[in-house]
């Protein structure tokens, strides 16, 4: 079996946290400084930096310091592998259940449920 991702475990760990997922979502819109990324969160900067470090170690993001500002960039290639599979699973279940809605509508019509 092809081992497509050398760091899947750390990527899973990175994706498991809602703050880190939100940061990835934000970086999907373009690079951002750590200061800007941290702003919406009520946690202290050291706690936020731990999340950034986790994301960087997982390979999902890269950071670069220019002057006093550290900028984060989404590493789309590394995100794609695991992300894509989960997104496809979500789509599979969502579409499947939309079919079930249709079937239930038909069955409810037969049954005349209130």
């Amino acid at each position: 079996m092809e081992n497509y991702s050398p760091a899947l475990d750390s990527m899973f760990h990175a994706l498991a946290d809602p703050t880190r997922r939100a940061v990835l979502h934000r970086l999907g819109q373009g690079p951002a400084s750590i200061g800007d990324l941290a702003e919406p969160y009520p946690m202290g900067l050291p706690s936020f930096l731990k999340h950034i470090n986790t994301l960087e170690q997982s390979g999902l993001i890269a950071t670069q310091k220019v002057g006093r500002v550290r900028t984060c960039t989404l590493n789309r290639a590394n995100l794609a592998a695991a992300e894509r599979w989960f997104a496809e699973q979500r789509t599979l279940w969502s579409d499947r259940y939309d079919n079930l809605d249709t079937l239930l509508t038909i069955l409810n019509g037969d049954d005349h449920e209130a």
Binding site: R21, A22, H25, G28, E83, F86
Partner: peptide, 19 residues
């Protein structure tokens, strides 16, 4: 098999939606 989503931006929108 289930590859209906092509654009990574769409994937991001779905999976990393902030809670």
């Amino acid at each position: 098999m289930t590859s209906t989503l092509e654009r990574l931006d769409d994937l991001l929108e779905i999976l990393t939606k902030p809670e």
